[in-house]
Amino acid sequence: MEFVIRSCSQFSSIKIIKILIIWCPQYGIYINRLETIQRKFMRFLQYKCKQYDTSYESRCKRHHILPLMERRKIADTVLYVKIAQSLVDCPNLLSSVKLRVPNRSVRRLVTLFIPQCHTKYRHNSFLVRTATQVNRLLESNDLDLFNSKPSKFKQAIASDWFESVS
């Protein structure tokens, strides 16, 4: 944390926050450790700006910075959408995007097929985790996997989070 505070004078705060996104742990203890770094940084930023908020979420909202977990969701979702739209040239990953085609009419249309996972390791894999997130976004927002730009998915996740924080 001291490195982050010392570096504030040399780098912009956004660059430092972006560095923290590189690591994407799946276990809660490691997620909390990384989030703790941003929490401390947000308290430091609050002190420097002389604007005091009681909760971490309200500090993030005031400074227009998403929590690291939300930023990881955005990065994963945007990459998945780019793979599905063939904006990323990787045929192996594109073949892993499985569309769900129901054999009869259903009320709730789920676009992506998500395999059953018998282990937490498989459940937390990139393709399963992100396909679940994309399905939720497609249901709740007016988005299309193949016609909407990846930035629209990013805006949808960010606006959902900012609306949920009061």
Rank of each mutant, 00 (worst) to 15 (best):
Q116P: 03
I22D: 11
E35D: 13
L127K: 03
P115I: 06
Q116F: 10
L138G: 10
L79Q: 12
N32L: 08
L34F: 05
L127E: 06
N141T: 08
R71F: 01
D76A: 11
P115K: 05
Y80H: 04
N92G: 00
S166T: 10
K98T: 13
C60N: 10
Y80F: 15
Y56L: 06
I114Q: 07
H123T: 09
F113I: 01
L66V: 12
S12D: 11
Y27P: 00
V134C: 14
K18C: 11
N147S: 13
Q85V: 09
S166D: 10
A75E: 14
I5S: 11
K61M: 04
S151L: 12
G28M: 10
F41I: 04
I19L: 14
H118C: 07
V101C: 08
K149C: 11
K15G: 02
R122V: 13
V4I: 15
L79R: 14
R72S: 05
N135F: 12
V97A: 03
I29D: 10
K98V: 14
N32W: 04
R33V: 00
S95P: 00
K152G: 06
R108S: 14
Q46W: 02
S151P: 00
W23F: 07
L112S: 06
T119M: 06
S140K: 15
T111F: 06
T130D: 13
C49W: 00
P115G: 09
I37V: 15
F146T: 05
T36L: 07
V101G: 00
V165M: 09
Y52N: 09
K50P: 00
I29N: 07
S164W: 00
L112C: 06
S9A: 14
F153P: 06
F11M: 05
C60W: 06
I83P: 05
V134M: 11
Q10F: 14
F44K: 10
K48R: 13
T132E: 15
R59H: 01
T77H: 04
P25D: 06
R62G: 04
I157D: 07
S166R: 09
K18I: 05
L87D: 07
T77W: 03
L143R: 08
R100I: 00
L20M: 08
V88Q: 07
S140Q: 14
Y56P: 02
